[in-house]
Computed example of a mutant assay.
Amino acid sequence: MTTDIIDQGRNNRTAVGVACGVGAGALWGLVFLAPELARDFNPLQLTVGRYLAYGLIAGALLAPRWKAVTSRIGRGDWLNLFWLGLTGNTLYYILLSGAVQTGGIAMTSLVIGFLPVAVTIIGSRDHGAVPLRRLHLPLLLCIAGAVCIGWQALAAPAATSHVTRLIGFGCAVGALASWTFFAVSNARRLRQLEAVSAHDWNLLTGVVTGAQSLLLLPVALLIASGAQHEAGDWMRLAGVSVGVAVLASIVGNNLWNRMSRLLPLTLVGQMILFETLFALIYGFAWERRLPTVIEALAFLLVVLSVATCLRAHRAGPGVAHEGA
């Protein structure tokens, strides 16, 4: 009886965690569209605009409870927030925007699609994680899906030079490394920090990221001084920045942080696949076309990867570590 209650509680946590992961992926997929919506602005300007908006909104939401929230974190937590803001937001989005604008959404999605593999391999050593030997099938399906996702883009005639596409690929790899560090570090810290809610941790991250963007603002304005932008262009950038800040950074990050507290890191890694999946769906809508056979196959592989990973976690951490 007691065992059944424990299993039910674990399954409920997993279901809620997966739902939060899907929601975060749906909102995060929008960030791949932002560089296309404001293509006449460079990656630094897009990043500063988005995270200044994120920081201002987060600061406004925290203002009534600022002393109460900040009294529960120490100097080490502020340093941790600095690195999380830098790797998961500022640096990541500069690299991601550069990758989308020079290499395209599909190529960028291919590279970012390997995030689950990187996070799952690192997370397999965490306490309560399913050992890597039980995740071979989900990882293979994930890799196969990621390869299919980018096959069309790599095989299609290039609209830009090889050098430009190579720069885009390098930016995408850098974004992959940056966000892998963020995903692992953030999930581990959230499990250790019980005094601050997932929502408040996200808002604190936004305040720190906004401060980083404020320091980069003079550089972004200096670059903008040589470009010809009308008032309407700046309004469009502001609209895109606020929209992405609210949907992806405030709501999406909050869902992700809630998920990170509910799921083991090996399963957290698989949830990143939904960002890739939704990014492609939005990309198809932007291009006004249906997915090809290869892209449809990639969708199926992504779903199977997550489903088999969920199945591997049903036994629970105790069984998962047996013989490991």
Score class of each variant (00 low, 15 high):
residue 241 S to A: 15
residue 235 M to R: 05
residue 11 N to Y: 07
residue 152 Q to E: 15
residue 53 A to Q: 03
residue 299 F to W: 01
residue 205 T to V: 08
residue 200 D to M: 01
residue 91 L to I: 10
residue 280 L to N: 15
residue 72 R to H: 13
residue 113 G to F: 04
residue 184 V to C: 10
residue 322 E to Y: 11
residue 273 L to H: 11
residue 207 V to I: 03
residue 46 L to V: 03
residue 113 G to Y: 13
residue 282 Y to V: 13
residue 167 I to R: 13
residue 98 G to Q: 11
residue 299 F to S: 14
residue 40 D to S: 14
residue 240 V to F: 11
residue 87 T to F: 11
residue 126 D to A: 13
residue 267 L to E: 09
residue 252 G to N: 07
residue 177 A to V: 14
residue 145 G to P: 08
residue 224 A to N: 14
residue 140 L to N: 06
residue 10 R to N: 09
residue 68 A to T: 14
residue 212 Q to D: 11
residue 33 L to W: 08
residue 197 S to L: 10
residue 171 C to I: 02
residue 116 P to F: 12
residue 197 S to N: 01
residue 161 S to K: 10
residue 131 P to F: 06
residue 292 T to F: 03
residue 308 T to E: 10
residue 185 S to G: 02
residue 156 A to E: 12
residue 106 A to L: 09
residue 30 L to M: 11
residue 83 W to V: 14
residue 152 Q to C: 12
residue 74 G to F: 01
residue 101 Q to V: 13
residue 221 L to R: 01
residue 146 A to Y: 10
residue 305 S to V: 11
residue 117 V to I: 14
residue 184 V to D: 11
residue 275 E to L: 09
residue 165 R to M: 08
residue 184 V to F: 09
residue 182 F to E: 02
residue 111 V to G: 12
residue 291 P to R: 10
residue 124 S to I: 06
residue 130 V to L: 05
residue 43 P to Q: 02
residue 155 A to R: 03
residue 250 I to P: 02
residue 258 R to G: 00
residue 315 A to F: 09
residue 6 I to N: 03
residue 206 G to I: 13
residue 262 L to R: 01
residue 97 S to Y: 12
residue 70 T to C: 15
residue 232 G to V: 11
residue 231 A to V: 08
residue 324 A to L: 08
residue 309 C to R: 06
residue 148 C to N: 08
residue 102 T to N: 12
residue 257 N to P: 14
residue 305 S to K: 07
residue 213 S to K: 00
residue 303 V to N: 05
